[in-house]
Simulated scan of single mutants.
Amino acid sequence: MENLTYNSPVLQLESLIVSEQSLYPTFLFFLIVYVLIMVSNIGIMLLITMERSLHEPMYFLFCNLPFNDVFGNSVVVPRLMMDMIRPASEHYISYIECITQAFCYHIYTCASHTILMAMAFDRYVAICNPLHYTTIMTNRMVAKLTASAWGVALLLVVILLGLIIRLNRCGTLIANLFCDNASLYKLSCEIAYINNVYGLVYTGAVTGSSLGTIGFTYSRIAAVCVTNKSKTLNSKALKTCSTHLTVYVFMWLSGFFLTIFHRFTGVADYRKGAALLLHIGPGILNPLIYALQCTEIRHGILKILHSKKVMP
């Protein structure tokens, strides 16, 4: 029996447990949600690409968010839906596919933080130093911020999963909806001190740096608004920053609870719920919040809709 489970090339996903009565409604719900995420986020990216009035640093940086949501949800949701219609005994995944899924999942979650940090810097310059905005936020700076956001995420995740790959495995059951570092570590036969330390450093660095960056930039923005007492400036700051802050708070809380639930046993359902929120929530909220709050994006959508009505 040991030979069958020791470093097995095939693992089993616990996935989402759904009763027969609620199988098709649940499947249909996830299908609708997935289609909405794809259509809305790809639509936002196409709108920013095609509409010349949106060719500004803020929107180019924002374009990374819908791209990340499309990427992250494409890795998890289709597989989740496939497993839903299969018997629990057939929820198999190869170890290589599991590592790939974990890699993409952690890139998605880490990049969510780094992209929002880059966007916070843009808002800080726009509101606190508006006279020098065009000289600071050049196309080159936007490219640097974008490359840094993805590059930092890639480096941190490569180290994270590089440490997990070297460990021997005794278990085969991934007690989660999808593969991630914490679930893979629970399969290990070894208690690896370096993995525990780096896991804490990774979590602290990603969440702590994003919290610190956004806390600093928004406190400075608030100070400028209070000092200037300009209704126009305060209105601009409220519109652009409230959307950014809402998305960040939702994402941070979902990730925080998911990390906490991984540390305790007997909370599998809560952990799965937090994992779903972390994935599906931002993918739906981002285009909705920005489309409603951002005047330029809303005008771009209305312009396209109006042109389609006029054409016939």
Rank of each mutant, 00 (worst) to 15 (best):
T172C: 06
S210H: 09
I280F: 06
R298Y: 08
V10F: 04
L11G: 02
E90M: 10
V75S: 15
Q293L: 14
G281K: 04
S40I: 03
K229A: 12
N195G: 09
R263A: 07
F29W: 07
T146G: 01
Y105A: 07
A223L: 04
M251I: 06
T295V: 15
S40P: 01
L245S: 01
T138W: 04
V158Q: 04
Q12E: 02
Y6G: 02
L4T: 05
L302Y: 09
S8K: 10
L65T: 02
T135M: 04
A222L: 08
L163D: 01
I99C: 06
K272C: 01
A153H: 04
R220L: 07
T172E: 02
S112G: 14
P57M: 05
I99V: 12
L145S: 03
Y133R: 11
Y24H: 14
T213E: 13
I96T: 15
I164S: 03
M58N: 04
G204T: 14
H132Y: 12
L167D: 10
R86K: 11
M38V: 08
L258E: 14
A147T: 09
I284E: 00
I44D: 03
K272E: 03
L233R: 08
L28M: 13
N196V: 13
H91S: 14
H55F: 14
L285G: 08
F121E: 04
S53T: 12
L54P: 04
T232P: 01
I99Y: 13
F261C: 14
S230F: 11
N176S: 15
C110S: 12
M1P: 15
L167I: 09
L305V: 10
K309C: 15
N64T: 04
L65M: 00
T109P: 02
G151I: 05
T26D: 13
F60S: 02
S188H: 08
I93Y: 05
Y270S: 14
G171Y: 07
L23Y: 10
I85Y: 03
R166P: 07
S210N: 12
I93W: 07
M141S: 05
S148P: 09
L276A: 06
S148Q: 13
S53G: 12
R298E: 02
E2L: 06
T100P: 10
Q101A: 15
K308S: 05
R123P: 02
S15A: 15
M141K: 12
L292P: 11
Y198N: 01
